[in-house]
Each structure stands twice: as structure tokens, then as C-alpha cells.
Amino acid sequence: MSDTVAVVLLLALTTYAVFGGADFGAGLWDLIAGGPEQGRRPRELIEHSLGPVWEANHVWLIFVFVVTWTAFSEAYASIMLTLFVPLTIAALGIVLRGASFAFRKSVVSLRNRRLFGAAFAASSVLVPYCMGAVAGGIASGRVPAGGTAGDPVDSWINPTSVVTGVLAVTSVAYLAAVYLVWEARRDDDAEMADYFRRRAVVSAVAVAVVGAVGMVVLHSDAPYVFDGMTGRALPVVIVGVAFGLGALVLLARDASRAARVLAVLAQAGIVLAWGVAQWPYLLPESLSVSAAAAPSGTLRVLIVNVVLAVLIVLPAFVLLYVLAQRRLLPEEGVPDAADRVADRPAD
């Protein structure tokens, strides 16, 4: 039963990496889009593509936390006590990001828009880095079992964490760029499609380089996960890489819709490969899934809840995504009201 919950946990984490990841990546492209005039069009595209769904994606993160502390409390306690610094930065970053994004839509002056835009974009980079660093700390066995604290510094400032942090940032950038190509295509905006296509290629190369460096680092710093990646998880890795390359080929051929699907699968591959590689451990080589599991009564109710959530919440989520994809959701913010103010002659 604990295996089932662990698989659910991994799938939820993957979903967050895919949907939340695209949001964060869009923030990164916002950050490096250049000055107000130069970056205006990419930023507009980013803003209206993120619009209505951006808040909903954190549901997956909350789900991951709830499942972890309910089903694997010992692992949760260890992770929280050890990695509280990057986790706190990530939490504050998520709050700042969401608030800034909302505020930016509600202010008119350029100075304020830039201020909130910068806060939004900077936290969009900081959060995935911290999340990646947390994953690296866990993967490299720096989180001790027993619900005890490990080294609060070395656990997230170490070779594996740096690589996984950078990998998280580059991979969400890649994913977002592919998404944005598709968004631009639907607007018949060839210039923006081209803009993000170039960025998708560059970030794909970056992901490949970081991934390769990552394997070298894992070899010496996280041998258990390295062995897993080159053994049990190798098929996942290969399929993931193939999807990532395939997405680029499709982008080059201007099949942006299919490219998006492959990019999502490639991103999912990274997280799934990590999970498969460190199986059966939650905390490699010190705490296994079954050893960390809560009493069966708790797990049973948790699984029932997951099934209910799938039946009740998932259709709503799918509807939300579909409506967002078809652009049937109302735009947020006040640009219209602001425009009216601007259009109105001074009284």
C-alpha cells in the first residue's frame, strides 16, 4: 500500500513540475526579456498565457506536501528540518511571485509595473532553483532518516543541489518556451513564435549540457541515484531525452502543438527518472518507502481520498485547463479600465 502512495506522490510531483514548471519558466523569460519597450511583446504574451491558471498549479505542490506528511511523516520531518532554508525561500518566493503578478495587473504606472514585474520574474527563477536544490539534497543522501535535522547548509549548497537547481531552472525555461511558441502561433504572431522558438532551442541545449554535467556530478556525489539512472531508470532517461529532441524537431517543422506534448513528456521524464532511480528509497540508502510509511489505517484513508480527488477535482481541473487553452476564461486585471482612463479627456 505504501508503494501505491509513493507512486501517487511521484505522479503529483511530476504534474507540478510540468504545470507549475511552465509558469515558473514563463517568469524567467519575462525576467530576461529586456527593457520595457524591447520586452513589451514577449511580456504581453507571457501575461495572457499565464493569466487564469497560474494560481491553480500550486494545488499540486500542496498535494505533495499533504501526502508526504500524512503517509511518510518521518521523511517529511527529516526533509523539513534539514532543508528548511531553501524550502522557506521557495515558500516566500511563491507568495511574492503570486502577489506581484496580481499587483502588476492592477497598477498602471510603468515604474510600479516594472517593480512588481521584477519581483514576479526574479521569484520565478528563485523558486524552481530552490526546489531543484531540495531534490538534490535528498537525492545525494544529505537528509538523514529518523525525523532528525541534517546539515542546514551543506544539504542544499552542494554539487548535486547546484546541478539539480540549475537543471530545474533550465528545464522549466525550456518547457515554457515551447508553450509560448504554441501560444504565439495561436495569435498568428510569427515574430513571437520565432522569438520563443530560438529560446526553446537554446534552453534545450542548456538542459542537455546541465544534464550531462549532472550525471558526472551524480557519479561522485550521489552514487545510489547515479546507479539507478544508469540502471533501473535508464529506459525512462532515454525516452525522456528522445521526447526532448523530438520536441525540437517538431518545433523546427512548426508543429508547435505536438511539440508541446513532447516537451511536457520530456519534463515529466526528468522527475520520473529521479523517482525510479532512487526507488525504493525516499531518502536514499537511509529510509525506504515501506519503512517510512504511516500505519495502514492512515494510508487506506489517504488512498480513498486520492481516488475521490481524482473523481471530483480532476474533471474540474481538466475543464479549467481546457477553457484556458481555448481562451474562454475572462482576462484578469484592469488594463481595460486603465485604457479608458487614458482615453478619457481630462475633466
Binding site: S106, V107, V108, V334, A337, A338, R340, V341, R344
Partner: peptide, 10 residues
Amino acid sequence: RGMSRRFRRA
């Protein structure tokens, strides 16, 4: 407050 000001002005 800013939104409210714009709202009135509009």
C-alpha cells in the same frame, strides 16, 4: 487605493 482612484476618475 490606486484602483479605487482610477475607478472614480473613470
